[in-house]
């Protein structure tokens, strides 16, 4: 009966006739308060800035131009490549990439370890890893800041144990930002990898061992290729929010490590007050994220098409 069951039991279409009604609230709320705002932001990025926030409704490429070129203080010098913002974006991408790799290095063994526990203890381990995610990100970041301050508990403890002679300067470094991002988004790496390792059939490891592979060869040649979709998903889930992160760079990185999030915030909440430029920077960030998601979705589609 397998085939017939699959077609008749798995799919219930009981609510098909009313599905449009059921989806209308979602369309209205997300359409009006998210899709429309994003489109409006796109429009704003092509407008002229008003000093002290807001816009003038004149079409202008100034925001994007400012992003790439330096035309001097009064805008009439010959254009030169303006590196400031490109460097900020590049630095954000690097920071996000480092945080992603860090998460992967720690997250994969953790996810694997949890997935190989007995079903009873498994959910407890998983619970332990996910709980911090639900704690307010601001509070977590503040806690990290408190912990790694120059005269914070970490340095005190290390000094007390005699491991170091003077406090390590952690706060306001790139490493602090990476640590903060890693700490913020680690559960996003563990969960999808866990999900794919849990589905992995360990008879394959046994088969490989039977064919003379040692356990590291098994990991490299059998397990990693098979659980790769989970790893890719985890990397995306960590990379995307890291790219636009605001709290970790702001609280842990200090002012000198400007990243995309702080740059954008500055245009609206801070002193810069350049809305079109902030909108343009947001559009560029959104585009980067959408490109990453699109490539991922394409690969997934190709993969499942190949499987079918």
């Amino acid at each position: 009966m397998a085939g017939e069951l699959a077609s008749t039991r798995a799919v219930s279409r009981t609510f098909a006739p009313v599905r449009t009604h059921l989806l209308i609230p979602t369309w209205v709320i997300i359409g009006f308060f998210l899709v429309a705002p994003v489109l409006m932001m796109l429009v704003y990025s092509f407008l002229t800035k008003e000093f002290r926030g807001g816009v003038i409704w004149d079409f202008s490429l100034a925001a994007y131009d400012q992003f790439i070129f330096d035309r001097g203080l009064f805008g009439d010098d010959p254009p030169q490549i303006e590196w400031t913002y490109i460097v900020i974006f590049a630095r954000s991408i690097v920071q996000a990439a480092v945080a992603t790799v860090l998460c992967l290095i720690i997250g994969f063994p953790t996810a694997y370890f949890i997935a190989t526990r007995s079903p009873a203890t498994r959910s407890m381990w998983l619970f332990l890893v996910t709980v911090p995610y639900w704690v307010n990100l601001l509070i977590r970041t503040v806690s990290m800041k408190f912990l790694i301050r120059d005269n914070g508990p970490l340095n005190e403890a290390l000094l007390g144990l005699g491991v170091i002679n003077e406090p390590i300067a952690l706060i306001n470094t790139d490493f602090a930002v990476q640590l903060g991002l890693f700490y913020s988004y680690l559960p996003f790496m563990v969960l999808p990898i866990y999900a794919s390792v849990e589905r992995y059939d360990f008879a394959l490891s046994e088969a490989a061992a039977d064919l003379y592979a040692n356990r590291w060869t098994i990991l490299r040649r059998v397990i990693l290729p098979i659980v790769r979709p989970g790893i890719v998903a985890g990397c995306i889930l960590v990379f995307v929010p890291s790219l636009g992160a605001f709290l970790a760079p702001d609280l842990l990185g200090g002012a000198k490590n400007f990243l995309i999030g702080s740059l954008i915030e500055e245009q609206f909440k801070g002193n810069a007050g350049n809305w079109p430029f902030g909108a343009a920077a947001s559009m560029i960030l959104l585009s980067l994220v959408l490109i990453a998601l699109f490539i991922y979705a394409r690969r997934q589609a190709l993969r499942s098409a190949k499987a079918a």
């Binding site: 308060f33 429309a36 705002p37 605001f246």
Partner: peptide, 12 residues
């Protein structure tokens, strides 16, 4: 990204 949502909503 959250910051993009924030910007878009503020503008809107």
């Amino acid at each position: 990204p959250e910051i993009v949502t924030a910007v878009a909503t503020l503008i809107f």
